[in-house]
């Protein structure tokens, strides 16, 4: 127990994190590369054609992991915002700030791949489908967080204000999802339910590998970005000068 607490305590110290994050980030990057290559090979070559959607379904190997990551990153962001507000941990704010653009990018990829898939399947690029709409609102929430975080001269004020917004957003995301679902059943737009509920194992395993790959990819990027966010926040400290070498 004490060993775990000590580990977290040390991890929370910016210089220690800066040191640790380099080998960890590198390891994550290699794992992500291998997993994504294996997943792509499995998804694009090994997996059979779908009897209904032909080859078009294969975009899900990018789409589903991105959509999953868009929510996962928001959760990470809100959790670190909470840690930052409660325990005043600078590292947590750095992680939240590093996560936001990544989450926004995953959301954008999910939206774009979703509409590209929609063109052959629905016959149009955009449908006010419940899930697409929720993703769009999630994307706007990310934009709000990024804008607010960067709006203040004092980065600490920006961090805290954006953290409050992230917590409000985290409570709001399920409500948005529910309200959009409700709105969708009222209008009965398209009844196309997307992918068939049962995915054959030969199509499923590359998807799971891709999802794991995306997680490590995010892990790598968030560590990488958090390093520069930390330097930005600790610019006046002794250790920062030593690290940067001036």
């Amino acid at each position: 127990m004490t060993a775990i607490r000590l580990f977290f305590h040390r991890l929370a110290s910016p210089p220690h994190f800066y040191e640790l994050s380099k080998p960890w980030g590198r390891a994550f990057a290699w794992i992500a590369l291998v997993l994504i290559l294996v997943g792509l090979y499995g998804g694009l070559w090994l997996a059979p054609r779908d009897f209904q959607q032909g080859n078009g379904y294969r975009i899900m190997y990018v789409h589903v992991p991105s959509a999953w990551m868009s929510l996962f990153v928001f959760m990470v962001m809100a959790a670190s915002a909470f840690v930052g507000l409660v325990w005043r941990m600078r590292l947590a704010y750095a992680v939240a700030a590093a996560s936001a653009p990544l989450g926004a990018a995953f959301t954008a990829v999910a939206l774009v791949t979703g509409s590209l898939w929609g063109k052959p399947m629905w016959g149009t690029y955009w449908v006010w489908d419940a899930r697409l709409t929720s993703e769009l609102i999630l994307f706007f929430l990310y934009l709000g967080f990024i804008t607010l975080n960067r709006s203040f001269e004092d980065q600490q004020t920006g961090d805290r204000a954006a953290a409050i917004l992230a917590l409000v957003g985290a409570i709001d995301v399920p409500i948005v999802h529910y309200s959009v679902d409700w709105w969708q059943t009222l209008h009965q737009g398209s009844s196309f339910k997307g992918l068939t509920s049962e995915i054959a194992p030969s199509m499923l395993w590359p998807l799971l590998v891709m999802m794991a790959g995306f997680m490590f990819y995010y892990g790598w990027l968030v560590l990488w970005r958090a390093r520069s966010e930390i330097l930005l926040r600790e610019a006046d400290r002794e250790w920062t000068r030593k690290v940067v070498g001036s």
């Binding site: 609102i137 709006s151 204000a161 709001d172 948005v176 309200s179």
Partner: peptide
């Protein structure tokens, strides 16, 4: 959230319009 900023009208709208969508959906419907 933006009390210490000078110009914030547009920013407030961007921050809150997505948060407020459920109210819009149920209210208008």
């Amino acid at each position: 959230l933006t009390v210490s900023l000078r110009e914030s009208g547009m920013l407030v709208a961007i921050l809150l319009l997505p948060v407020a969508t459920p109210i819009l959906i149920f209210g208008a419907h």
